[in-house]
């Protein structure tokens, strides 16, 4: 308790820390939001809850890491490369496994993706070893500093994180525009609304599903390639991103893609505040508590709606 009061006291004594926490939270949240965005897509369009989401993220990280360490590929170029490679892996996964479970009940697809998660983690472990890996992004060649400091060094903006957020924003905007403007995007949204009606109208839903799943995998891959520059990866760390993605999507509500991004940023900031005040051990507890609060609030809201209906 003393520690909690002491931590709150620090926030009041040094108001600039609040700003730092919010900035850190947004930078973290942006990356979680990317993984969650892909999940929302697959969940909404195909009704598949992909438990291997985090493993796609880590997979993308390893693609970038492997190319950077063996062929000296620049970590920034790793992001588009990971996007493409993970697109391919996503497509293969869809053709081999997901296409067979998509029409089945919820339990089958959960089991299948759970199995995939275990398998991917183990394959990465065999390929790359179980050591933690990371890449250092050196942008001094581009005429930038690797770290920017404000407020007597209390606020720090590592170039890697800032670039990560920018890339995440570009990616998210790209996907949103694609969904709104392109033919395929329209087909995806039509399939999400009613797959049968979409088929009647001549949309090849099988193709839409394959495309959606590959796109999800590619987004995750790009997120992973950013994460390997900002934090560290290890074959078994996928679950962290899976859990965060589920929390964010559930909190945002299905089919609410801009909401996913807002929820991602919000949860990032809330986690940072929580870990400052209650201790970093409670970081994830904060996210889950927040989810609980949102669910309870929704339940109450729905009850009111139902009463109206009666």
């Amino acid at each position: 308790m003393d520690q909690i009061l002491g931590n709150i006291d620090l926030l009041i004594q040094f108001p600039v820390v609040n700003l730092k926490i919010i900035i850190d939270g947004i930078m973290i949240g942006a990356l979680f939001a990317l993984a969650a965005y892909g999940l929302a897509l697959v969940w909404g369009v195909m009704n598949v809850k992909n438990l291997a989401q985090g493993d796609f993220v880590i997979g993308g990280g390893y693609v970038s890491w492997w190319l950077a360490t063996t062929y000296g590929l620049h970590p920034l170029l790793g992001v588009p490369v990971a996007f493409v490679v993970m697109w391919g892996i996503g497509w293969l996964t869809y053709k081999l496994v997901i296409s067979r479970v998509i029409e089945r009940d919820l339990f089958t697809s959960l089991l299948a993706t759970f199995g995939l998660a275990i398998m991917y983690a183990q394959i990465m472990n065999l390929l790359f070893g179980s050591d933690t890996q990371s890449l250092v992004l050196d942008v001094s060649a581009l005429g930038l500093q690797n770290n920017y400091y404000f407020a007597d060094g209390l606020i720090d903006l590592p170039a890697a994180k800032v670039i990560g957020v920018i890339l995440a924003a570009i990616l998210a905007t790209g996907v949103i525009l694609f969904m709104k403007r392109s033919r395929m995007g329209q087909a995806i949204r039509a399939t999400a609304q009613d797959a049968r009606a979409a088929r009647v109208l001549g949309i090849d839903t099988e193709k839409v599903y394959a495309f959606t799943f590959s796109l999800n995998s590619a987004i995750c891959g790009a997120a992973g390639a950013i994460i390997v520059m900002v934090w560290v990866i290890q074959p078994f760390y996928g679950i962290t991103y899976s859990v965060r993605a589920f929390v964010i999507v559930t909190a945002a509500g299905l089919g609410n893609l801009p909401g996913v991004i807002a929820a991602g940023l919000g949860i990032g900031a809330a986690e940072q505040y929580g870990s400052h005040i209650f201790g970093i051990g409670y970081q994830q507890a904060i996210a889950v508590m927040l989810l609980l609060a949102v669910l309870v609030y929704r339940l109450l809201q729905q009850r009111r709606n139902r009463q109206v209906l009666q």
Partner: peptide, 21 residues
């Protein structure tokens, strides 16, 4: 005196406190 979660990905919160204290 903080305990890092198993799925730790970021410890800026602790390091900020280190800076202040």
């Amino acid at each position: 005196d903080e305990k890092l979660p198993r799925d730790l990905s970021d410890m800026t919160a602790i390091l900020t406190k280190v800076k202040l204290l």
